[in-house]
Amino acid sequence: MEYHLNFNFVWKYADKLWWGLALSIQLAFVAILIGCVIGLALALAHSGGNRWTRGAVATYVEFIRNVPLLLLIYLVFYGIPSAGGFAYDATFSFVVTLSLYSGAYLVEVFRAGLDAVPKGVIDAGKAIGLTPWQRFVHVRLPIMLRVVLPSLSNAFISLFKDTSLASVIAVPELTYGANWIKTNTFRHIEVWLVVWPIYLAAGWAILAALRQLERRFRLGGDR
């Protein structure tokens, strides 16, 4: 059987794809912001904490990192409300899941970043009389953020791709838009031939922009 590709639908439903892409990027953005807050807080709790806080942080990180994101999405969207006798918006539930997920990954990133701040530079901060809080705000934090910036870029791209999983709970992001068009036009092949390059192009464009940003904040050479 001869199959003829037909891309007419793309123009008809372009807004579904466009708004889907916009939502995907927003979801990834919110998730990495909240993930950074979680990750940094837990990295600090881990480095300064006692055995119990360390154990709690490790449990959270290990659990999230060893369970499929898809399962976590279902668990948060269907599992938890069913036990608590409430319901929430799919988008909200997905943001919660993706934030917890990215938080678990970013703990490790921030921990490595904090460790990468040279001890001598912190000593220099002490030597000019900075208080511990000032040393954190003006020395450790800004250096650490510059060190982890490339990892944050990679994490963001990774989260952007992960947003495609939100389609399974009907969050209207890009993959959901694709599925929707597919079921309404039966143009299975064409839909994926369009959506795949959209993900690629968007991901590369975002990455190029982030690398530009990294260049601006790069710490000087011989270190």
Binding site: P118, G120, V121, A124, A127, I128, G129, I143, R146
Partner: peptide, 17 residues
């Protein structure tokens, strides 16, 4: 106390940012 005692380090230890 440290504010009144200056120190210069072998490996400079400048704030790199």
């Amino acid at each position: 106390i440290r504010a009144d005692i200056g120190m210069v380090f072998q490996l400079f230890n400048l704030f790199p940012h």
